[in-house]
Structure formats: C-alpha cells, structure tokens
Amino acid sequence: MIKDTDTDVPVLKPEEEARLHEQHGVPVHVAPTQKRGKNNDRVTDAILTCEDVNVFYGDFRAVTGVDLDFARNQITALIGPSGCGKSTLIRVLNRMNDLIDGARVEGKVTFRGVDMYAKNVDAIEVRRRIGMVFQKPNPFPKSIYDNIAYGPRVIGMKVANMDDLVEEALTGAALWTEVKDKLKQSAFGLSGGQQQRLCIARTIAVKPDVILMDEPCSALDPIATTRIEDLMAELRRNYTIVIVTHNMQQAARVADRTAFFTALADEGTGDRTGVLVEYGTTTQIFESPRDQRTEDYISGRFG
C-alpha cells in the first residue's frame, strides 16, 4: 500500500465558488478543507469526489472503501483486471446503479460539493448533468436526428432551434460531415464506430458537465477506436471525462490521471471485492508506480 501522503486537497478557490454561486443562484455547498484519503494527492480542482464508497449488490460487496477525486476538464481513466469494480464504480457516479435491483451505495459521492446520494436528490437530475456512454453502442430505434433530439426533448431543455443543436452535437462528436445528408435515416444503418460517436453526440446534446465512458471502444475496431480517442481529446476542453478501459495503452494515450483497481479476496469468505490500489497522474502510474500490484499489472505480469 502507498503511504499516506497527508495532503490537504485544496477545495474550490473563492473565485470559483463565486462563479458557481452565480451560475446556480444558490449558495453552493463546498466541502470544508479536510484531510483526504491516501490516493488523492494533487487533485486540485475536483468536480466529482468519492469518499469511502462501498457498493453492494444484495449481500455481495462489489467495491470497498474507494476515495477518489476527479479533476475538472481532465480525463481520468479507471483501469484494472475484470471484477475489480471499475465498471461498478463508474455507475455510481451518475446513479445508474439505482436501476439495478438490490444495488446499494454507501459512502459519500459529491458533485460540485453537493452530496449526490442525499435524500432530496433526484437521480434523474444527476444524470442530466453527468452523462454516460456505454460499452456497446446503444442508439435508439429512431432516426439519427431523433437520437440527438431525444435527450433535449425529454428533459424539456429550452432549444431555440433543434436543427442547430443537432448539428452542433454531431459536429462536436466529429460525425456531422458523415451523416449530414441522412439525418432522417435510422441510426441502425450506421457502422459501429459511427453509432458510438452518435451516442457521444447524443450525450453532449444535453450539455452535461461530466461524461462517463464505460469501455467505449471495446466493441470497435482500431480505426474507430482512434477516432473516439481523438474525439475525447477534443471534448476534454469542455467536459470532464471519466473512462473505464481494459486497454492500458488507451489509458496511457488519453488519460491525464489514472486510477488502478484490483480485486481483493476476503480472507474469511473468499468473496472478492474491488479496491482502489493507486491513483495518480498517468505518467506517474505508468512510469513510476508505487505499488507492486500496479507495476505487475501495467507491465503485463498480472491480470
């Protein structure tokens, strides 16, 4: 295990807090300066935070004791072997786990300082601000245009001109030139890579703050993968991105920060649970990992 670094995570700067206050019209709750967990050194501008997060499916504890801060306008990759809880954790970040019977989250998850699992929080509102792109492209059985317009319509977004918004979203997802002449055609006619970019376009159409991506390229060929990775680098300017990936090279290519998870077996029961092993800048994780398990994993000796 890494030694506790005892770093105080600097919370929102006063001017940032003022900006948020202005944006939302209500005082934004900002967590007081406090000592943070061992894995969070040097995240200075956290938009999402996890504090001692545990996830259960019924009696099974899928994730144990995760402390993790996600930096604004950066790409954070979650890597680790199968069963390490990384996909479970990313679903905690926009309350997708609510849709699974028997799933339960303990601990504190905040978005802009607001506890996301507090009683008065509407999970649907959470998902409007924190979008998600899935492992397999999952366009709706609608036209390309309607796939994009769906999100703004269901959340009742005030849209001056839907055509413009659709074009903007498709351009943002680097898909516009390929589909601009067939917007009325079914989204199922697109290739896998195009469908995945459509799903990204659909996500940015509702203008979220954070985009969660759960192995977004695992069903795509290398060329389509490259395009998505390039797109992520573009999106990084306006969005905070969290990506789960099985592909370590992908994490190394796209991510600013990387969190390595692994599955630990309980000594008594033998049940496996996911834990965060090490978190740092991608360079640090890949070039000078501090934990032996991280080193074993990234050098291909394990997992």
């Binding site: 997708m96 998902r127 999952n138 059985p141 769906y150 269901v154 959340i155 799903c199 996500t203």
Partner: peptide
C-alpha cells in the same frame, strides 16, 4: 428490448415513463 436502450435513455435524464413510451414502445 435490450436493457442497454433503457440505460441509454436513463443516462440522458429521461424518467421511466419517457423511456417506456419513447424508447421501449417504438422498439
């Protein structure tokens, strides 16, 4: 109808009725 479609809809901020009527039903 694949679960993935419902999740995709939910991830955009749709409620259950919207997902049912606008995604599951047409599918």
């Amino acid at each position: 109808v694949p679960q993935a479609m419902r999740q995709g809809s939910a991830a955009l901020g749709a409620n259950r009725m919207q997902t049912t009527l606008r995604v599951v039903f047409p599918a």
